[in-house]
């Protein structure tokens, strides 16, 4: 009895491995493209879109991701172990200008030209939400400076006399600028500047407040699933001025999220380089795709397919005609 079970299992295992072996295809000289996966949603989605195109529109490439923190991946890319960083928040990488100047990192293109960041509040804080029975709490809140009038609206439960303002992530450039802004507008008198150590916690605190209909003010950026999903308002600030922005005295510029590569990539995959130079989405588009992802519980891979079908015209902008066709075929 026991023996026959073992035999059956062994048989099943053999069949499976043989079948599995058959399914491996033997194309000549396949190059593996490695891209960073730094753990945030929009990048994963962008990666999946690229992956679908690379695997279906081109012949000789395999595609894999290197999961890790952005700093680790950045070092790996300088070393040439990772080929590409799709959706690179270069403004947050202190050494970026230096690395480009040294030729360790190569600018490939701009993926998202219009990414916004700054201080956000849920819309119901300003306008209320009759459906959820929420009264407007700060009807006149429009600008960052207006916050001065409303510290009591955003109480810090560890120090209730003051308001709480959530800063950006420790170590990000945006965080340093935001802190200067906080001092510049005199918010430091009535607000505590609270830094959470991770994006997950920052978003969780926002989601939690949103869930309870509580006021919340803090740093956020687009595109993310949370800006796609929650109804948030970006507080206005003085118009962008390149000279003042680093001191926090004006709004953040619309940030460009770039595609950057290791120095070896151009040589390794010249045809792909053409695609990545043109690969471009937009803050709005991606936020919507992320909200789709969050609402339907789809995988990033599925959301990528959905995106490519939904915005079919992008394929023509990104790819030569015959490659675009191949991708379309694979989509259907």
């Amino acid at each position: 009895m026991k023996r026959s079970i073992v035999l059956m299992l062994a048989l099943a295992f053999c069949i499976t491995t043989v079948l599995g072996g058959c399914s491996g295809n033997e194309k000549a000289e396949i190059k593996t493209i490695t891209v960073t996966n730094n753990g945030w949603d929009s990048q994963m989605l962008h990666n999946e879109i690229a992956k679908f195109i690379v695997l279906n529109g081109y012949e000789n490439y395999d595609f894999q991701t290197s999961t890790g923190s952005s700093t680790m991946n950045w070092q790996a890319m300088i070393a040439g172990d990772v080929d590409l960083d799709i959706e690179s928040w270069t403004d947050n990488v202190a050494t970026y200008p230096e690395d480009v100047a040294n030729g360790d990192i190569v600018d490939v293109g701009v993926l998202v030209p219009d990414s916004a960041q700054g201080l956000y509040v849920p819309r119901y804080v300003i306008e209320g939400d009759p459906e959820r029975g929420i009264e407007p709490m700060a009807p006149d809140l429009k600008t960052v400076e207006d916050l001065k009038k409303y510290p009591h609206i955003f109480p810090d439960d560890e120090e209730p006399e003051k308001g709480r303002l959530y800063g950006s992530l420790p170590g990000w450039m945006a965080d340093e600028i935001l802190y200067k802004k906080y001092e510049y507008y005199g918010l430091n008198e009535s607000y505590n500047y609270v830094r959470l150590g991770s994006e997950a916690a920052l978003f969780a605190s926002l989601a939690s407040a949103y869930n309870l209909g509580d006021p919340w003010v803090g740093y956020c950026y687009e595109p993310t699933w949370i800006t796609g999903k929650l109804d948030l308002v970006l507080l206005e600030d003085a118009p962008y001025d390149p000279d003042l922005y680093l001191e926090g005295k004006c709004e953040f510029p619309k940030q460009e999220l770039k595609i950057v590569s290791s120095s070896k990539f151009a040589e390794k995959a010249p045809d792909l380089l053409e695609f990545f130079k043109k690969y471009k989405t937009g803050s709005q588009l991606i936020s919507e795709a992320l909200a789709y992802l969050d609402e339907t519980g789809a995988t990033h891979e599925e959301a990528a397919k959905w995106f490519l079908k939904e915005y079919d015209y992008l394929l023509d902008e990104w790819l030569p005609a015959e490659r675009a066709e191949k991708v379309r075929e694979a989509l259907n």
Binding site: E158, Y166, A201, A204, S205, S208, N211
Partner: peptide, 12 residues
């Protein structure tokens, strides 16, 4: 960690 934030806000 995240549920803890959902239930008890952030911080201490």
């Amino acid at each position: 960690l995240v549920p803890a934030v959902m239930l008890f806000s952030t911080g201490k």
